[in-house]
């Protein structure tokens, strides 16, 4: 990618963040709330995309990293009364540690085996949330007390029950995620990731330690997903085992595929579209998840590159 293209890409990313910032003053209340949720879920999918889109490893177990962040942050606030920033950091750390451990084991496999191994690990994590019900209250879950959801940063009081604060925290998290992924993708590691996706044996022959690079990708991916989970629980105050179910692993895949795997903004676009498609469909039919199934099939049959991927291929070559 040329320097000029890269400048255009950075400008586009900044413009997207600016638009999202301005949107909060324009959006009606419901869409304002929904956007907050979509941005947090987009971070989850963007994390997923680092592994799937850029490295070419399809995981069916990312709900476990989301849940790792969700539970680590939620339980420390609930049981240990930790402050919000500390709990968030714990959630992120939990994601880093769990993805490192899972990665060391699971990355010994590839392809179909990798999908099934990650799915199995995620199933174990889900069962664990049910098993340790003394702490998690299983599928019923826990509500974070309102008092625990405000904190001071350098003397400024932050109240997470305030929708404006919440929107901007979600936006900040999204912006940070975009910056991190942009940085990673344009680093040497990033080029190696893409090389692995395109042809792993050749990358190996060129002298790269592909295992270490894939592990790095998985840790970045898992940590970002966990950050999304931690943010989710702190912003919306509920932790429950539903977030560890396979449904959420599939959601991340769905958002990424729809928006465009391997494009920086694809997961955000995918999360946005799926949220509204399902929200609108649920007004007309009980079987609104049917849409999710049809979208997956149509994508994989006709648009394997997703929306932004297709746009990049056909029209805007420099799309990040």
């Amino acid at each position: 990618m040329s320097g000029a293209d890269r400048t255009k890409a950075v400008l586009l990313l900044c413009a997207v963040i600016a638009v999202l910032f301005v949107l909060q003053f324009l959006l009606p209340e419901y869409h304002h709330l929904s956007m907050t949720r979509i941005m947090v879920l987009a971070v989850f999918a963007m994390g997923y995309n680092v592994l799937f889109g850029y490295t070419g490893l399809l995981s069916l177990g990312h709900a476990m990293f989301f849940a790792a962040g969700l539970y680590a942050a939620g339980l420390t606030v609930y049981h240990l009364e930790w402050s919000v920033p500390l709990a968030f950091a714990t959630g992120v750390a939990a994601g880093a540690v769990s993805s490192l451990v899972i990665g060391v084991v699971a990355l010994r496999t590839t392809g179909v085996s990798f999908m099934i191994v990650t799915m199995m690990f995620a199933q174990v994590a889900y069962l664990a949330t049910l098993y340790f019900t003394t702490y998690t209250r299983g599928d019923e879950g826990l509500v974070l007390p309102t008092a625990a959801r405000s904190f001071d940063v350098f003397g400024v009081a932050v109240d997470l029950t305030n929708p404006v604060v919440r929107y901007n925290i979600a936006l900040a998290l999204l912006a940070a995620t975009i910056a991190i992924i942009y940085k990673v993708v344009h680093s040497e590691t990033g080029r190696a990731l893409i090389a692995i996706r395109e042809n792993e044996p050749r990358t190996q022959m060129l002298g790269y330690n592909t295992f270490a690079i894939k592990l790095k990708a998985l840790v970045i991916s898992g940590t970002l997903s966990a950050a999304s989970g931690a943010a989710y629980v702190l912003l919306f105050a509920y932790v429950g085992s539903t977030f560890a179910t396979i449904q959420y692993s599939i959601d991340a895949l769905l958002y990424t595929l729809l928006g465009g795997a391997g494009t920086l903004l694809g997961p955000l676009a995918g999360a946005l579209m799926m949220f509204y498609v399902i929200d609108i469909a649920s007004e007309y039919t009980v079987a609104y998840l049917l849409i999710a199934g049809l979208v997956l099939i149509v994508l994989v049959l006709f648009f394997q590159k997703g929306v932004l991927g297709t746009i990049r291929e056909r029209w805007i070559r420099w799309l990040p």
Binding site: L58, V286, A287, L289, G293, L294, I297, L301, Q304
Partner: peptide
Amino acid sequence: KRLDYNPEATIVATIGMLYVIQQMALL
């Protein structure tokens, strides 16, 4: 068949089929 049995594409497609069949049963 149209996916030429590509392993990853077929997994995604069968996930799609999972939802379609399950939701048709619901309907």
